[in-house]
Design a protein around this nucleic acid. Structure first.
Lengths: 188, 188
DNA sequence: GTCTATATTGCGATAGAC
DNA sequence: GTCTATCGCAATATAGAC
């Protein structure tokens, strides 16, 4: 299998964002802000500043675009998992705290986009989200050493993802954290 | 404003389900099992055993169908709220316990359907879900007398709704309840 | 690598018979 | 109250020029 068409530049931070990445950015934004219905190929292409034909050069179908989004989610989640495990505040607290959306955060944008695809009954999205979610839960359970408690922490996180994806004002996280067993009383 | 076309029979339980209700049932089922994309007017009509024209007699547009679903959700949620407040186990425990889906329960079916519409970025669905959700939270807070704690309980419930809408195997509720402050240790 | 057509299908909605 | 037939549009995808 040949590798991806544009070889990634050594320094992704300083290099101009590739068209491929801008297309994924645009798809994430449209999914998050306007939902799956609005994330048409036309709209994604326009938001990324290319034509539909341009989009279809990078992603040969809408399915391929979705797979690109989910691939990105997995990659970002893997990076996050490492940060989570080494967070001084602890994995559980880190998880809950970062489940409240700042739309500027790449992982959070990718997660919200995936959530919308999940509710659109996309099987691969369900698989990707389940996989990522499961890895988070394992990390939390390793820290807390209690299955039921780690489930509660994760359910709270899921609830935060849900209200975030609804555009509802999130509750005060610190307040929630203070009332949550397993993370309350830990150093910030 | 004229009242709804078919006057409701005095005994709704024994009477045959009206076409209107069967259409709403079908829409709920398709939304829950296959997502908003699959819930087309054609598919809803077919699942209810009528033609598209027949559907459009009862609901003059897809928007009207959605409003019908949300209206039903509000009605079912209002009934549930009364049961919740008078539940011997307490509102919080009742809420968490009934957030785990049995697809045969009308309120749970309606809630899942609404959640799918929410992620499809339907504004009225967001409004309806927020309203219902808020009423639940108030009832929980009245029982627990603690804002932060009631938020935690509700977030756990939301998390359960989310995993339910994904078709993921729900965690053991009793285990979760045992680890949750505010409901642990209450009589069952 | 990006563009402009264009083919094709599927969906929401209307019209009018029965 | 339910049906069939049909219009109009929007969305995915293809073909091929530049």
């Amino acid at each position: 299998m040949p590798s991806r068409t544009p070889p990634a530049p050594a320094d992704a931070a300083t290099a101009a964002r590739s068209t491929r990445d801008r297309l994924l950015d645009a798809a994430e934004q449209l999914l998050g802000e306007a939902g799956p219905r609005a994330a048409t190929l036309d709209a994604v292409a326009a938001a990324a500043g290319v034509s539909k034909g341009g989009l279809l050069y990078h992603f040969s179908s809408k399915d391929a675009l979705v797979e690109g989004l989910l691939e990105r989610l997995r990659a970002l989640a893997a990076e996050d998992l490492a940060r989570m495990r080494s967070a001084p505040e602890g994995a559980a607290r880190y998880y809950v705290r970062t489940s409240v959306v700042a739309s500027s955060d790449p992982l959070q944008r990718a997660t919200i986009a995936a959530l919308r695809l999940v509710q659109d009954a996309d099987r691969r999205a369900v698989a990707a989200f389940t996989e990522v979610s499961e890895a988070w839960r394992v990390a939390i359970e390793e820290e807390l050493g209690d299955r039921a408690l780690s489930r509660v922490v994760q359910l709270v996180g899921d609830g935060l993802w849900m209200s975030a994806s609804m555009g509802v004002v999130p509750p005060d996280v610190e307040e929630v954290l203070a009332a949550l067993p397993g993370v309350a009383g830990r150093p910030v």
